[in-house]
């Protein structure tokens, strides 16, 4: 394996949890709901998936449990913002705080346990192609799943009737409601989908990426996922690009250190964040004001309003 291959491989795996969580949030936001609780749902996904995987000695059950945990957290959020029309920003933050706390309680008995690595899926012949072979055809299942998910979400939003409904509701819930579209129901499912994805991303962190659980292991990745959605101007393909750019910035700064450039490590650590701001700025300048933000994003829906 050459160093370029190796670096690309690391970037892809580092980006995958960000991509999965951001795709879920993208669907939620496209329906007009801003869920700032990604970090909390992800933390719960990590803790529950690990607990279940260890208890039942099954990665599959672990993944399912992680997605379920994320979904349940999302359901709680849906109850607040749809059922009670509560402030979405506040509810999302509450979800994050709750998720970080609860995940600590759930994970505590599993500190010190570990899981075996999942063997990468080796697609014969194709994986022997130089450079791209290892990169494209010898990843773990989650990496493929995340790419398939990107395509599916894109197709769903742009090519299906149901996706169109979801987008119209996100654009303007008042007129969507007037047209008889089921605002609440669609948003409910969109929120749950976001939760399941965040849970899956958490499961990836705990079961594949680190293969052990520890408190606070999401370390702010949920917030990065939120940033990616805006960065991508609410388009799935760009989420993929953004996730890989952020992953690359994170990984390359470490390589820059190992290559002994002698730059302050704090400056290098700040690069991914500064790069995100810069990218947001450039995108905004290029696309003008409303860069694809759903019109009703973050506004509580009450029929008579």
């Amino acid at each position: 394996m050459t160093i370029v291959e190796a670096i690309l491989l690391t970037i892809v795996t580092a980006s995958t949890p960000l991509l999965i969580a951001a795709l879920g949030e993208l669907v939620t936001e496209r329906s007009g709901v801003l869920n700032l609780g990604v970090e909390g749902m992800m933390a719960m996904g990590a803790a529950c998936s690990f607990a279940a995987a260890v208890t039942f000695d099954s990665t599959l059950i672990g993944v399912a449990a992680g997605m379920l945990a994320g979904t349940l957290m999302a359901a709680l959020f849906a109850l607040l913002v749809l059922g009670f029309a509560a402030n979405q920003t506040g509810s999302g933050l509450a979800l994050t705080i709750l998720g970080l706390g609860l995940s600590g309680l759930i994970g505590a008995p599993f500190v010190g346990a570990r899981r075996d690595p999942i063997a990468p899926l080796d697609i014969p012949i194709l994986s022997d192609i130089p450079v791209v072979g290892r990169l494209f055809f010898e990843q773990d299942l989650f990496v493929y799943a995340s790419i398939v998910l990107t395509v599916l979400v894109g197709l769903y939003l742009m090519r299906t009737r149901s996706g169109l409904t979801l987008r119209s509701i996100g654009e303007n819930h008042t007129s969507a409601n007037a047209l008889g579209l089921p605002v609440w129901r669609v948003r409910f499912w969109a929120i749950l989908f976001g939760g399941a994805c965040a849970g899956l991303a958490g499961a990836y962190l705990a079961l594949v990426y680190t293969r052990f659980w520890s408190p606070g292991m999401t370390a702010g990745r949920g917030w990065i996922a939120l940033a990616l959605v805006v960065f991508a101007a609410w388009r799935p393909g760009w989420v993929l690009v953004g996730a890989y750019i952020f992953g690359a910035a994170t990984v390359l700064q470490l390589h820059a250190q190992a290559a002994q450039f002698g730059v302050p490590s704090q400056l290098l650590s700040a690069v991914p964040y500064l790069a995100t701001i810069l990218a947001l700025l450039l995108l905004s300048i290029r696309h003008g004001r409303a860069i694809g933000a759903p019109g009703s994003l973050g506004v509580p829906f009450v029929p008579d309003r």
């Binding site: 580092a14 990426y209 292991m217 370390a219 470490l254 190992a258």
Partner: peptide
């Protein structure tokens, strides 16, 4: 953990 792992991978890659 994830970042520490990335740092280790960067070294191993080099």
């Amino acid at each position: 953990p994830a970042k520490e792992g990335d740092a280790a991978k960067a070294l191993l890659d080099q």
